[in-house]
Design a protein around this nucleic acid. Structure first.
Lengths: 213, 213
DNA sequence: TAGATTGTTAATCGATTAACAATC
DNA sequence: TAGATTGTTAATCGATTAACAATC
């Protein structure tokens, strides 16, 4: 089975649908139409039909999609049902925030160990996850065949941490730090890059405040 | 003066150029060509020329752009020279991480106060910024004419915090929490939405691991 | 049946890339 | 001058939206 590459924008919209579906289900709703989703999310209904079609979910004319089945399709399509183990690098505030969030669990990611350069943090637990020293990282990656690492260190240590990850055999880096990092070919990197969205915001604010011609 | 709306993708690429320019400048380089930037960033040179042109920077044939001037153009274009004040809501780990990062200062954002629902945190300082109770938020927004708020609370409190911001007259919300929030028309919201990038990563990893046909 | 909603094919739109004349 | 690099116009590509036949 080969997986077709899917537009990244579709991959980013699907979790939005999922979150909304969860709310609708909680509100007791059983089915939903593309137009209904469209209204809530301000996305074109045809766009939503295409996105949903790519997950393999099938709706019924006049009824729409059954919410639980649709959620299942999205989970499978995004491989949220994969249940993979991950390491967290950086046991500070950012690391704690991501462990607290529901998204990790939903995406099927289980963080089994955290690592930190600061000896004060080593030996403690963060949200129930043991914190270990950097020295143990590579060995554990190889012994446990962990493919995913979450990068949550301060920005001046980010690239260094990414290098350690790549060197240790990590296959995919999710970079939550405030600055993008790079890794050698073969290692997937996804930079959350929060400051990119700040640039957009600052510019949009200026546009909205500029006196109109 | 009216500002043309600029493609969001351009706005997201410009900070990348800026970071690279900073490194090149630190390495003693004085000018740079679009092709050079392109090589480092794996972006098409013509794309870079267009992006740079939209900032108003002018390069010279055979030479390229002078790095300091180019950096200045990007700063002005992104309104990083605006020097605006902002409030931080959520004085936990996420809030601390963003205050530590260089990006805020670079974007001209100065966080003058933080707010937290937890009385344990109120009265302390976070990276030199005083932490106050939620009750003071609205009054201070109006008195100080603060337009930008940074949302850095745990995900289950995010929407509530966004509502408070909108109600208090905040014009632009930069949402760093792990879940997107919404706000009434007229209030700009930019969700960093880190989990969107996780979805992309998990899917790409699955694609790369799937046996080829 | 009538009509709402689906999924798909075609048209449009916007962003990226190619081609090229201008110029330092 | 020759050639590298610019900025811009035209071509391509991909994503979004419109149109519509199928169907519950």
């Amino acid at each position: 089975m080969t997986l077709d590459p899917i537009p990244e924008l579709t991959l980013r919209r699907l979790p939005q649908y999922y979150r909304l579906l969860k709310n609708l289900r909680a509100a007791g709703q059983e089915t939903v139409s593309a137009s209904q989703l469209a209204e809530h999310l301000d996305i074109h209904p045809t766009q939503i039909r295409k996105d949903l079609a790519s997950t393999g979910s099938q709706g019924r004319p006049k009824v729409g999609h059954r919410i639980p089945e649709l959620m299942g399709s999205i989970e499978r399509f995004l491989h949220w049902d994969n249940r993979s183990e991950a390491f967290l690098v950086g046991a500070g505030g950012m690391g704690a925030a991501v462990l607290e969030a529901a998204g990790l669990d939903r995406a099927g990611i289980r963080v089994v160990a955290a690592f930190d350069a600061n000896p004060m943090r080593v030996g403690k637990k963060l949200q129930g996850v043991p914190v270990m020293p950097y020295e143990k990282f590579e060995d554990l990656v190889r012994r446990m065949h962990v493919a995913i690492a979450i990068l949550a260190v301060p920005e001046d240590e980010a690239q260094e941490a990414a290098d350690l990850m790549a060197r240790s055999g990590i296959q995919a880096i999710w970079n939550l730090s405030m600055t993008p990092v790079t890794a050698p070919t073969g290692v997937l990197v996804q930079n959350a890059d929060p400051f990119a969205s700040l640039s957009v915001l600052v510019r949009k604010l200026a546009e909205s405040q500029a006196p109109k011609a």
